[in-house]
Design a protein around this nucleic acid. Structure first.
Length: 643
RNA sequence: GCUGAUGUGGCUCAAUGGCAGAGCAGUUCACUCGUAAUGAACAGGUUGUCGGUUCGAUUCCGACCAUCAGCUCCA
């Protein structure tokens, strides 16, 4: 008999070679049905795994990440199986689980059409109904290659696996796939699934390789969960800033202006102004000096900074470098411009740190397929800044940047939605970076030390550094789950030297300072987009472009409404009056759809006794109150912002 | 840049190889209204752009532009 330690600490005795599946059944039928995979002594394995020694076992259900992965990975095999049955000539690439479902990449002569998804789903239903067991087996490399000889992508993968090790496969019915597992015991457990989209995806994520057809899907143990998930996806679409932001008239785009060049409408422009003032004021409090530098420069500048060699494709160049004696380029970054402030005279170690900030408009010639609403654009304005400091000040300055970013995130309410990423260089892709490996290792070690001292939880990412140094990226996901960088703080040990930025140290020696490139709240356009999504358009009062709408019950109160609006504006509130001859209910409804935080309704009663009937976006009717009382209430709420 | 889809008034959508239509929104007039959708009238389109086929193209074909999903790239 074997001693099995279960997750709660319970110990069970089972016969040798008992499968985890049977163990589940012994524990309870509920667990048996819900189980997806198991963790045996910390290793995630199939439920069909037979226990041969004393060990600890944790049963993974769909509620755990690993259980979900096994479930979705099995769903992806079922999909590939269905595709193989329907389109025998299609070659299989890879098909993993993702954080939110699964996909499989296929190489198909004819691209899949939307109608094909239904056909594939129908075939998948049959495979599920057949409840085919998934069987793990392994082969030596030569046999594995022979088995997969009609599948060129699998052959490529097998050839890269280490010599001498057996290669594992899973079989379900007539379908066999190269796979490390784990999987559900049989296809019958994938009860509810939906194929969501067909897109292109490069083989091995490499844009120089062939583009394959990727089908995305989701799957759940119960039909109800699938329905809920699909409803959630629909709900997410309603928050999409690219739709909501246009509906609410924050921004628009025009074909003949061009891609990635949004027009900020009065509401969008107002919110960005509010954020900019907030950022600039806070930076001033924290010792930053504001600069305003040119939006373009001669190519000479970018040659010094390295942008001409490393970022030329991303710049809008004015003039032809082949023909013209002088070529200008719109700036893709502020650094080389702002450095000139530092360089304007010799600096002493006593002056450092020098903290420069700028509300800086940048231009980047992004590839045509990259633009997305306000999140990815070709012209944007960033809360930019550079700190030149001595090595002994680096940690404190870095800490200050992280603190400022955290303060901003908390103020706008995104602090719970972000996560931190330590972005490192890729030593195998040296062309992308300047500086020596030793310098990189040192800068990265410095940053890691600082991050650990700050007790920041972070993930590490290779190959995500800037070309001049490592970054701390503050990442966020949009409403569709797509990840973007909101804020970045970078340590640069290269550009000071390139630009000859020096200071005279206490020992009389000229030295190069460290430079921190940092942003407080990121790009205003992107931040606005994420705020619209976060709040579904209903921004907190202090950043609402329209805070109050005053509505007369009938035309008789038009004058009272106008004078109320004036008084509210004088009190510093952003106010509109709705003087159209529409029914009251209709005007209220419209203000609601436009997410206006407060509506003040003035009828005969209110006009007579100097009150207003207040309706709030959040709480509905609050009732009548004296005019001044409402102003006090609104002011209090505005001031609550950055507590 | 790549793969695929899409493009008809401000919005949502219809129709057709032979005069492009509806609802909502808009404007004007009347109604003066207490929590959306009174009545009447008006206005709004070179069907994304350019080219081709055709007696005739919004419809068929091509190129381009823009939008969307994703890949790749990035704040």
């Amino acid at each position: 008999m074997l001693k099995i330690t279960l997750k709660g600490g319970d110990i069970r005795e089972v016969a040798e070679n008992t499968t985890v599946d049977s163990l589940c059944r012994e524990i309870s039928m509920g667990l048996y049905k819900a189980a997806c995979a198991a963790k045996v002594d910390g290793k995630v394995l199939d439920l069909r795994f037979a226990l041969t020694k004393d060990c600890s076992v944790e049963i993974l259900t769909f509620d755990s990440d690993e259980g979900k992965k096994a479930f979705w990975h099995t769903a992806s095999h079922i999909m590939a199986h269905a595709v193989q049955r329907l389109y025998p000539n299609v070659k299989l690439a890879i098909g993993p689980a993702t954080d939110s479902g699964f996909y499989y990449d296929f190489d198909s002569e004819e691209p899949f059409a939307q109608e094909d998804l239904q056909k594939i789903e129908d075939e998948m239903k049959k495979i599920v109904k057949e409840a085919l067991p998934l069987e793990l087996f392994s082969l030596p490399k030569d046999k594995a290659l022979d088995l997969m000889k009609d599948q060129p992508y699998k052959v490529e993968l097998i050839n890269e696996l280490p010599e001498g090790e057996d290669i594992t496969f899973y079989r379900q019915g007539e379908f066999v796939d190269l796979c490390a597992g784990p999987h559900l015991p049989d296809t019958g457990r994938v009860r509810a699934f939906r194929l969501l989209s067909i897109t292109g995806a490069y083989w091995r994520g490499d844009s120089s390789k062939k583009m394959l057809q990727r089908i995305y899907g989701v799957a759940f143990p119960k039909a109800g969960q699938l329905e809920e998930h699909l409803v959630r996806l629909e709900e997410a679409k309603k928050r999409d800033h690219n739709k909501l932001g246009r509906e609410l008239e924050y921004f628009t785009t025009v074909d003949y202006i061009g891609q990635g060049l949004p027009i900020l409408m009065p509401k969008g422009a107002r919110v960005i102004q509010i954020l900019q003032r907030f950022v600039e004021d806070e930076e001033q409090k924290r010792g930053y000096l504001l600069t305003k530098t040119p939006l373009m420069a001669k190519s000479d500048l970018y040659k010094i900074s390295g942008h001409w060699d490393h970022y030329r494709e991303g710049m809008f160049v004015i003039g032809d470098p082949e023909k013209d004696s002088e070529v200008l380029a719109l700036r893709p970054m502020t650094c080389p411009f702002q450095f000139q402030v530092y360089l304007s005279r010799m600096r002493s170690y006593k002056e450092l740190p020098i903290r420069l900030s700028e509300t800086s408009t940048l231009f980047r010639n992004e590839d045509s397929g990259e633009m997305h609403g306000l999140i990815r654009v070709r012209q944007f304005t960033i809360s930019e800044g550079h700190i030149a400091c001595r090595p002994d000040q680096l940690e404190e300055e870095f800490r200050g940047c992280v603190d400022l970013a955290g303060y901003m995130l908390k103020a706008v309410g995104l602090d719970e939605d972000v996560y931190y990423r330590f972005s490192k260089w890729d030593p195998n892709n040296r062309d992308k970076y300047i500086g020596s490996p030793e310098q990189w290792e040192e800068a990265q070690e410095r940053m890691r030390q600082i991050l650990n001292d700050l007790k920041i939880e972070y993930t590490e990412a290779d190959g995500e550094a800037a070309f001049y140094g490592p970054k701390l990226d503050i990442q966020i996901r949009n409403v569709h789950g797509k990840e973007d960088t909101l804020i970045t703080i970078q340590i640069d040990f290269q550009l000071a030297e390139r630009f000859g930025m020096e200071y005279v140290d206490a020992d009389g020696q000229k030295k190069y300072p460290y430079v921190i490139h940092r942003t407080s709240i990121g790009c205003y356009e992107r931040s606005l987009a994420l705020l619209i999504e976060k709040y579904a358009g209903a921004l907190p009062l202090w950043m609402s472009p329209e805070q109050v709408r005053v509505i007369p019950v009938s035309e008789k109160q038009a004058e009272a409404v106008k004078s109320a609006a004036e008084k509210l504006r004088a009190a510093g509130l952003r106010v509109e009056a709705d003087l159209r001859n529409e029914k009251l209910g209709y005007k209220i409804r419209e203000a609601q759809m436009q997410k206006v935080p407060y509506m003040l309704i003035i009828g005969e009663r209110e006009a007579a006794d100097g009150t207003v009937s207040v309706r709030s976006r959040r709480d509905g009717d609050i009732g009548a109150m004296p005019f001044d009382e409402f102003i006090a209430l609104a002011r209090r709420e505005v001031e609550e912002k950055a507590k």
